[in-house]
């Protein structure tokens, strides 16, 4: 077992290998490892965030759904109310129209009646005159008796 130059040669090659490893092997591998672990951490964080976002979105969706249901119910209620209102208004309108029509018809009828009465009265006075002429055999002075006849006609 001799100690000789091999010792120094070994130390030199050892130094070279360490230097090479330090310069060209260690940094890229460690950098890649760190980059990967950062990437994984990012990925996990992103997944967490995504699930949180999903939760929030679901909550929001339920909220919106409930709100829109409430709104829909409100709208339906309003529509019903409005419909009832319209129906009531229409009924009132119809009643009023009917009343008006009836009133108009009634007044027209009354007028017709009055007019017919007038006509009848005139004719009756005429007939009365004619009848009287026939009865008296003489002509009745229209002018002299017209007042009398008028009075008669009025009584009819």
């Amino acid at each position: 077992m001799n100690l000789n130059l091999t010792l120094i040669g070994q130390a030199i090659s050892f130094a070279f290998f360490v230097w090479f490893c330090m310069k060209y092997v260690w940094p890229p591998v460690i950098a890649a490892l760190e980059e990967r672990s950062a990437k994984i951490a990012d990925g996990l964080e992103a997944a967490n965030r995504a699930s949180r976002d999903l939760e929030l979105a679901q909550e929001k969706a339920t909220h919106t759904l409930r709100e829109s249901k409430e709104q829909a119910a409100e709208i339906i209620e309003q529509a019903n109310k409005r419909a009832n209102q319209i129906i009531d208004e229409a009924k009132e309108q119809a009643l009023a129209d009917g009343q008006r029509l009836r009133d108009a018809a009634n007044s027209e009828i009354e007028q017709d009646v009055v007019r017919a009465k007038e006509a009848l009265r005139a004719q009756v006075s005429q007939l009365a005159l004619i009848g009287a002429e026939k009865i008296l055999g003489a002509s009745v002075d229209e002018k002299a008796h017209s007042e009398l006849v008028e009075k008669l006609a009025q009584e009819l």
């Binding site: 000789n4 070994q10 290998f17 490893c21 890229p28 591998v29 890649a32 490892l33 980059e35 950062a38």
Partner: peptide, 29 residues
């Protein structure tokens, strides 16, 4: 100098740095 010791140790050392350098060059995330 021990030629066999030096030869084998250097050859194995070169094998080490060659292998690891090869992987280090391709190292990525």
């Amino acid at each position: 100098i021990h030629l066999d010791t030096m030869g084998f140790s250097i050859a194995l050392g070169l094998l080490f740095i060659w292998l690891f350098r090869k992987a280090a060059k391709k190292a990525s995330a």
